[in-house]
Design a protein around this nucleic acid. Structure first.
Length: 574
DNA sequence: GCCGTTTTCGGCCCGACTGTTTTCAGTCG
């Protein structure tokens, strides 16, 4: 059992313990242990098997969890988990994903109605049965029904980082065979879409049948849906992500890559264009209608060229103007990940991060960045141990001192300041004035009506110390809708005030998304792409932020953390 | 369940909102 699986099992147990109403601190120990296990570079098994070492030497792992880990590896479970699963079926875990429904309510419902599935719960709400229970009423029934609706709408989709990691793992596995096949991920993953329904892998080369046979034998394959000579379809992991592999002839590889990358709308438009030109486009190639001659297919570029277009980056293939731009030769030169020189939103152990300022700085520097901004939470976010004025002043001093150490690297002192319900910030202006960078973000009162939210954000922009509007729509992918306000008006005002807009690269947010980005870009506002890292490994999420930016047609000129420090600081002057 | 110059017990993580109540339990961040 690998570390990830162990961590997942510990988390799962912690979830069940929540429902069982077990002491919160005890649950936290399990979650903490899960986090530790997940971030270990060495397999737990190796440590346990080494008689010279003691797993309890790792901070956060004591006697009980050490024994749980041992049992987990030996027999796939441990007593606390068994005990929980005896009380609550695993389907109860799914209920926790419904917004507005927490462990206590799930436990009460299970206790009274013996119901622990989403469908069962939905029926209960529709029948108005929930209101029979203490402290539950009609409004709660409605809230849960709405939560179920959102959950169902998003079910079966996955965050891009999860799909991406799965794809990398499978591609590496197939490459291990060294049968000189080419393997590429197509589909929405290649287009950089924020959420992915299934992963499409294309294999071409001399031994594609071997590759497909090997693919279905991968240890994380759960269920084989289809297994033929040229196609296999499976679900992987306990999450059940569907992965399709297709084997292709080398001379139609480009056509297949184009076809399976999509989007559907883009492909339809492309085929229509082909028809108008007396051509026919399908997954095998581009053909002349009159005599059936194949005129392109081996590579994507040849297909686009034959259609009178420049090659279109996958991120733009949504049929929202990219074909016209490609015809006119006016496609933008999209921003590239290697052009990013700074990360401007991250947290440390001062608030809710996992690493100290120095550790974050070292990791960022190693990544090749020229500068970063430390932006811990402010005091209104008490749960995240947000900083008040005096702690912030102290931190500014520490940052200045730490930053002195390097010639080639700078730490900016920043803060992710909370936007209160009235549109004011929760840190005094005198202190904000001393920061290099102020990100203003909404973390509460997210469901107020549109007009109030618009006013609230417009009010924030009036504060002369605000530089960046953080995760501007507040969405949590697959979990929470963006909050509602007059976005166009707010970005227009931001552009006027020289407040920049953040593209939050966290795979759970990827906020802004593509339609918002297009609107924002046309307002003339400038962007920063930042990871909101709470862990050094989160720096790697920058790639997803860049993908989002590319989907929004952004170029290097739109994104400010591509600038040298000197030039960047000039963009902060209001 | 973990930790420890406050060390074998007691602290760890808190404030605000909502919906249900008439004082507070549950949820969220």
């Amino acid at each position: 059992m690998d570390n990830k699986k162990i961590a997942d099992t510990l988390e799962e147990t912690a979830d069940l313990m929540e429902i069982a109403g077990i002491d919160g601190f005890r649950i936290r120990s399990y979650r903490n242990a899960a986090q530790i296990v997940a971030s270990l570079s060495e397999p737990i098994v190796t440590i346990l098997q080494d008689s010279d070492r003691n797993i309890t030497d790792i901070k956060g792992i004591g006697k009980s969890i050490a024994s749980a880990l041992k049992d987990l590896i030996e027999r796939g479970s441990f007593s606390r988990r068994d005990e929980m699963l005896e009380k609550y079926p695993p389907t109860a875990l799914e209920l926790l994903k419904i917004s507005g429904l927490g462990p206590k309510t799930i436990a009460t419902i299970h206790h009274h109605f013996r119901i622990s599935t989403i469908d069962g719960l939905e029926q209960l709400c529709r029948d108005g049965k929930l209101r029979e229970l203490p402290r539950m009423g009609e409004k709660l029934e409605h809230r849960i029904l709405r939560g179920i609706e959102i959950y169902k709408r998003n079910a079966g989709r996955f965050l891009i980082n999860f799909a991406h990691q799965t794809a990398i793992e499978l591609v590496n596995y197939l490459n291990e065979n060294n049968d000189s096949n080419d393997i590429t991920a197509a589909g929405s993953l290649r287009r950089g879409k924020e959420t992915i329904g299934d992963v499409d892998l294309l294999v071409t080369g001399p031994k594609t049948t071997n590759a497909i046979d090997r693919f279905v034998e991968h240890p994380s394959v759960n269920e084989i849906l289809v297994h033929g000579d040229t196609k296999a379809s499976v679900t992987v992991g306990r999450e059940g992500l569907q992965v399709d592999v297709r084997a292709l002839e080398t001379d139609s590889y480009g056509a297949a890559l184009q076809y399976f990358t999509g989007s559907k709308e883009h492909n339809v438009a492309l085929r229509e264009r082909a028809v108008r030109m007396g051509l026919r486009l399908n997954e095998y190639g581009l053909y002349r209608n009159d005599d059936g001659t194949k005129i392109a297919g081996q590579c994507e570029t040849s297909i686009y060229e034959a259609l009178g277009l420049s090659w279109i980056p996958p991120e733009l293939r949504e049929n929202t103007g990219e074909i016209e731009a490609a015809a006119e030769g006016t496609l933008p030169e999209l921003i590239r990940a290697d052009e990013i020189v700074a990360d401007l939103h991250m947290h440390t152990t001062e608030s809710d991060g996992y690493f100290s300022m120095n550790e974050m700085a070292e990791a960022a520097r190693k990544k090749g960045y020229q500068y970063i901004a430390i932006t811990d939470h402010s005091k209104a976010l008490a749960m995240a141990n947000g900083l008040d004025e005096s702690r912030l002043l102290k931190q500014i001093k520490q940052i200045r001192e730490a930053s002195e150490r390097w010639e080639d690297f700078t730490i900016l002192s920043g803060c992710e300041v909370d936007i209160l319900q009235n549109g004011k910030l929760d840190i005094d202006n005198e202190v904000l004035a001393q920061l290099d960078l102020v990100i203003a973000s909404v973390h509460s009162h997210m469901d107020i009506e549109s007009e109030k939210m618009t006013d609230r954000l417009l009010h924030v922009l009036e504060n002369p110390y605000v530089n960046i509007l953080g995760h501007p729509t507040g969405r949590l992918l697959l979990r929470r809708d963006p909050y509602v306000y007059d976005f166009e008006r707010v970005v227009a005002e931001a552009s006027k005030c020289n407040v920049h807009i953040e593209i939050n690269a966290s795979p759970e947010r990827l906020d802004l998304g593509f339609p918002h980005l297009r609107v924002a870009k046309s307002s003339g506002v400038k962007f920063t792409i930042s990871t909101d890292a709470h862990h050094t490994k989160h720096f790697d999420n920058m790639q997803y932020g860049v993908l989002s930016a590319r989907r929004g047609w952004l170029t290097v000129n739109d994104v400010l953390n591509t600038l040298s420090l000197e030039k960047f600081l000039k963009t902060l002057v209001r």
